[in-house]
């Protein structure tokens, strides 16, 4: 799709965290949203972050090739939705993109829904691509599990959340990231009161659900107790004909349901 500079596209970006080390970074889905925005709007794309402009990880977004980024300076306990609502009241946009959910904190993924509800815009969740924008309508591809896609049309303006199946974000370059500028606006958000009552703790591992055998008879109980666990060394076919081997493989494929009818 050619770069459409007449469109006003904003991307909401957050500070992510690495799933393994927990270190601050650009959030993966947000970065994909920025990538999607860059392919649509080029460098006229605007980035909006609610939080602290002092966070170094934000520069990773600027390193994707943007000169500036708007930061609505807010305290950590502020309610980002109210801050953004005020922002979009004065800075209209045609498309607002965001990740599906944040990588830290509550990560409810509710913010785009709140914005959409209060702005009265439609919301398209989990998009992978914006195929075309014509006559005030956009054709988007929604990501479904296992690589499937669904085409949707939606009128502008709208909010979309960008799925992890969207094209990967371009590399962030250190130099431009360091030189990028923050347009800091003092936010006027209300505090998120409800959250203050919550207790946060290090995630503890969830108990694995045991495979409870509901044996109805002694024979079944006996079978359950003595059955070999599956997957301990597979079957090896050597002497059979190629036809039989192929049949065995094919049957397995059908049984696993990966051969489409």
């Amino acid at each position: 799709m050619p770069v459409e500079t007449s469109l006003n596209i904003a991307v909401l970006v957050s500070v992510g965290q690495h799933p393994v080390s927990g270190r601050a970074r650009r959030a993966d889905q947000d970065a994909r949203a920025v990538e999607l925005g860059l392919t649509l709007a080029g460098r006229s794309l605007s980035l909006v972050h609610v939080g602290d402009a002092g966070e170094p990880a934000l520069r990773q977004y600027l390193g994707m090739g943007l000169r500036t980024m708007t930061v609505l300076q807010e305290a950590p306990e502020a309610d980002a939705a109210s801050s953004l609502l005020q922002y979009f009241a004065t800075h209209p946009a045609d498309i607002v993109l965001a990740g599906v959910q944040a990588e830290r904190g509550e990560a409810s993924g509710l913010l785009p829904y709140l914005l959409a509800e209060r702005l009265g815009w439609p919301l398209v969740p989990r998009i992978a691509q914006i195929r075309a924008i014509e006559n005030g309508r956009a054709e988007v591809l929604q990501a479904l599990p296992r690589g499937q896609r669904r085409a949707l049309t939606v009128p502008l303006p709208f909010i979309a959340t960008v799925d992890s199946a969207a094209p990967g974000a371009r590399q962030t370059a250190f130099g431009p990231g360091q030189r990028g500028l923050f347009d800091i606006q003092r936010g006027l958000a209300q505090a998120d009161v409800a959250r203050a009552e919550w207790v946060e703790a290090q995630a503890r591992p969830r108990p694995k659900r045991l495979n409870v055998v509901k044996a109805k008879s002694a024979a079944e109980r006996f079978k359950a107790a003595t059955a070999k666990p599956q997957g301990q060394g597979g079957q090896v076919m050597k002497q059979e004909s190629s036809r039989e081997k192929a049949q065995a493989i094919f049957d397995l494929l059908v049984a696993e349901g990966v051969i489409r009818q």
């Binding site: 690495h18 393994v20 080390s21 270190r23 970074r25 390193g63 994707m64 090739g65 371009r170 590399q171 962030t172 370059a173 250190f174 130099g175 431009p176």
Partner: peptide
């Protein structure tokens, strides 16, 4: 790499891993 962000192939991923996990494999 530093100005254009054009480390080819797995370069970008490896550098991201080095930044986030101090090792190239992302462990």
């Amino acid at each position: 790499t530093l100005e254009k962000g054009e480390t080819p192939n797995k370069g970008a991923e490896v550098l991201d891993n080095l930044i986030a996990t101090d090792n190239p494999g992302g462990f």
